[in-house]
């Protein structure tokens, strides 16, 4: 139940965290300038830096940057995914005159004036994961295919529930859905892909309105418990890790009838994979953050050196991990947290 006034208060709170992060960053510029004499310095600004998704991306990007001799300045608000906290960071980084900017914009429009400032200084700008609405200033964009991920989730869930046998027009299979935020583009794309696939292929699935958890697992739990109490739920689509935690908890406390509920969800955290191996999750939809990080650094390198080809848009598929393919794939796709 976040309200606007709450965000205001949080905004004030965040200002202090941000001041601290910009401060440490400014402290670091001297070292960057010294080391930059030979190497390229690339500013890399993500959404919420502590999110394992971005941590995993950092691992992929850093390894590639090291290999290519690129100096990465990695920045992002530690916890808040918002343009209000991202804009000052991007603004400040302009002062160090990086060779290139890689940006995961937290808003499709709000960052564009700043991007124009970079372009005016002849600094090329790249998008990773999320993208600006207007791509004319963007050299290259590497992103995951969340729409396809949502569709894949619908297929995985239908098959786990035994759609052909168990879901009929007379007794539809009820599916509960949890999202972190309905305004985040990735969540929206996954939801859209899921809904489109259900509408196209699975008329005997009844999808409930999504529970919005605001990234609070306990809120997700409480919402799923409502769905479970109100309906005979057969499946759950958990659109991110928070909702997956919430769904697992709701099922755990809902008694034996809930044990047969099939769960499909994002993302490939180590703990989620463990849950799947324990039989509590039917399938995990994984993004490829490390590969996104690696590919965008390759694109940056190609642009800066003039060597190699740059494609404007690279879309990486979302991967479906199941107990059947886990032995082969899980180790590759698990998100790194350190």
């Amino acid at each position: 139940m976040k309200s606007r006034s709450m965000r205001l208060i949080q905004g004030a709170a965040v200002a202090s965290t941000l001041a601290a992060s910009v401060f440490t960053f400014v402290g670091g510029t001297a070292a960057v300038a010294n080391a930059a004499s030979k190497k390229f310095t690339v500013a890399y600004v993500v959404g919420a830096a502590s999110d394992p998704f971005f941590l995993s991306m950092k691992a992929g990007a850093s390894a590639e940057a090291k290999k290519l001799g690129i100096n990465l300045v990695w920045q992002g608000n530690p916890s808040v995914y918002s343009s209000a906290t991202q804009i000052p960071i991007v603004q400040t980084l302009l002062a160090i005159k990086p060779s290139a900017l890689v940006l995961a914009p937290t808003d499709t429009k709000a960052l564009q004036p700043l991007v124009a400032q970079y372009i005016a200084k002849k600094i090329p700008v790249f998008n990773v994961d999320s993208g600006d609405a207007n791509q004319s200033n963007i050299t290259s964009w590497v992103t995951g295919n969340n729409l396809q991920g949502g569709q894949a989730a619908a297929d995985a869930l239908a098959s786990a529930m035994g759609y052909a046998k168990n879901c009929t027009a007379a007794s539809k299979c009820v599916v509960a859905i949890g999202v972190s935020s309905i305004t985040t583009s990735t969540d929206a794309a996954r939801l859209k892909g899921f809904a489109a696939e259900v509408a196209k292929k699975y008329p005997n699935i009844k999808a409930l309105n999504p529970i919005v958890s605001n990234s609070q697992p306990a809120v997700a739990t409480s919402g799923f418990k409502q769905d479970l109490a109100a309906n005979k739920v057969s499946g759950i689509f958990a659109i991110d890790g928070t909702d997956l935690e919430g769904a697992a908890q709701a099922i755990l406390t809902a008694g034996s009838a809930a044990k047969s509920i099939k769960v499909v969800g994002y993302d490939a955290y180590a703990t989620t994979i463990k849950s799947m191996q324990a039989g509590k999750i039917s399938a995990i939809i994984s993004q490829q953050p490390a590969l996104e990080g690696k590919d965008i650094i390759d694109a940056v390198y190609a642009k800066l050196t003039g060597k190699g080809k740059i494609s404007h848009l690279t879309t990486l598929a979302n991967i479906v991990l199941t107990p059947a393919n886990c032995a082969k794939l899980c180790a590759t796709y698990v998100y790194k947290t350190a």
């Binding site: 605001n214 609070q216 697992p217 928070t242 935690e245 919430g246 697992a248």
Partner: peptide, 20 residues
Amino acid sequence: IWYFNSSGGAPQNGIGNELE
């Protein structure tokens, strides 16, 4: 209580609940 109800310590839990 939130730990019990969600089987773990999530850093987002409770954020914003002062307004509630």
